[in-house]
Design a protein around this nucleic acid. Sequence first.
DNA 1: ATGAAAGCGCTAACAC
DNA 2: GTGTTAGCGCTTTCAT
Lengths: 308, 308
Amino acid sequence: VSDRTARRVERAVEALGYEANPIARSLRTRQSHTVGVVVPDLTNPLFPPILRGVEDGLARLGYTTLLANTDSDPERERRAFAALEARRVDGMILASARANQELIQEAIGRDLPIVLVNRSVDHVPCFAVTADDRRGAALAVQHLIDLGHRRIAHVAGPLDLSTGRDRRRAYLEVMHDHALDTPESLVVLADGFMAGDGVVAARRLLDSGTPFTAVFAANDLLALDCIDVLREADLACPGDVSVVGFNDMLFADRFSPPLTTIHYSHHETGRIAAEMLMAHISGEATTPTTVLLPTSLRVRGSTAALET
Amino acid sequence: VSDRTARRVERAVEALGYEANPIARSLRTRQSHTVGVVVPDLTNPLFPPILRGVEDGLARLGYTTLLANTDSDPERERRAFAALEARRVDGMILASARANQELIQEAIGRDLPIVLVNRSVDHVPCFAVTADDRRGAALAVQHLIDLGHRRIAHVAGPLDLSTGRDRRRAYLEVMHDHALDTPESLVVLADGFMAGDGVVAARRLLDSGTPFTAVFAANDLLALDCIDVLREADLACPGDVSVVGFNDMLFADRFSPPLTTIHYSHHETGRIAAEMLMAHISGEATTPTTVLLPTSLRVRGSTAALET
DNA sequence: ATGAAAGCGCTAACAC
DNA sequence: GTGTTAGCGCTTTCAT
């Protein structure tokens, strides 16, 4: 066919507004050009920027995202996963990984390309991109120590989540390195990472009677809960107790008091995960790699030097 | 086939983990059981709860959401819309409607079921569910008047968005009803509804030199910008200037100062929109209706009585 | 009631 | 290079 004709055809195609039916194409090629994204809690301001990063990374290659929000409910996670798989997504980005989630192992066994984001899993080689949780948590605790605090509590996230586990471990290590006590009553566990999940844990901390002058919360939402509970008990932050969070989520700088927290780039997290997934799907990347994003301390109003 | 055999087959089906291929089904039935959701700005904490409402409304009927985030960029809106339509969504929920968006008219002309959320359009009968913007804005302005304020400024949203237009109109009406002045310098326009969009507008307000003791911002994000700019100019909120926002978005109560704002149920907004869309798709609902959600005033720390 | 066959719109494989 | 054909996995229709 001549060049001229080709152009005429193209013009006609455009004029008629013809667009290939991607459904028929998918049926034939077994590729949906769609990736599933599973997020545990969209109302956590950490995730929207990650999602935007993912979209930015995928859109350039003509991929669309199918979003599922699970409210951290394992049953909903299961359903979301099944729904996405049934819709034949070409791959998935999971921000909701749990430590021993057979779901993920099974999927990998079935050769479904998966990239973990924010959280990772143990003992299974996985593509993943997360914050450097150990280093970040160490930074947070070190900051409190530098301010003169010695009795530092930790409100940990669930230990079946890598973020909960790793941040807690780093806390214990740094405390130990400085020969500081970490009695069991000083390390409490929250039921989850969502707003409100830290309330019960923080109350338990207070009720134990163990004295403390600072607390490292495993994420910003838990840190906010801590501050609420402290206020409830007429303890001021940072006047009486310093609090540091993790994530530097959107708005962390606007709360009262502004949150001292650990920062890393959420948008980058999403973007890198998207690119990793694309490389995985195309077969370019074959060995699972984990990218650790650098963390940094953001000192704001919720921490202060210990009055002596 | 006997009952017994049927059961055996069913069991076998389950055992083998067979799942009908929804792509083949879609190709045949021309139904994707997927709806597109277009959101202008996921990082605005107003939208995640709306999205959850939508998901809750849709999930029960086995529908999945295809999410697109547009950053309020008309070009990205166009692309997102095209991508969703190409993927043959059964309908769309749009939170990004502009006043004269041919996109929407065209789509409706093509019989694509659409429900508008949060924002509506003029002159085109549309399924829509929004806050009662007029009443809500009136509540906000009335509150400031009740506190003794007379020189009340307004930071309006873009006037090609129903929310920008309606809230501004209500502001002008209430002010007029109370015989209060609204010189042009007291009503400034923000470029958008996203974080940061209010900064320039608020500066213009301040630079005009027109005295004012209160400002009604067209949404919470703009209100936060106002408070920032005021602080920049050494004006305290609410000490020197009271500020009220709109939406009562997530975290509005935790800012410094806690935001006085107009509340309505975001989750309901999403849920109702989802149900409306389902009814529209199924052909149950045929005449476009608009649902106006009731609004209420939440008095918090960013407003105070005028010192006399 | 049950089974056979056609066809949705595309792409990949094949023959010309 | 260009045109033809088979078939992806369903649903629907039609014949039995």
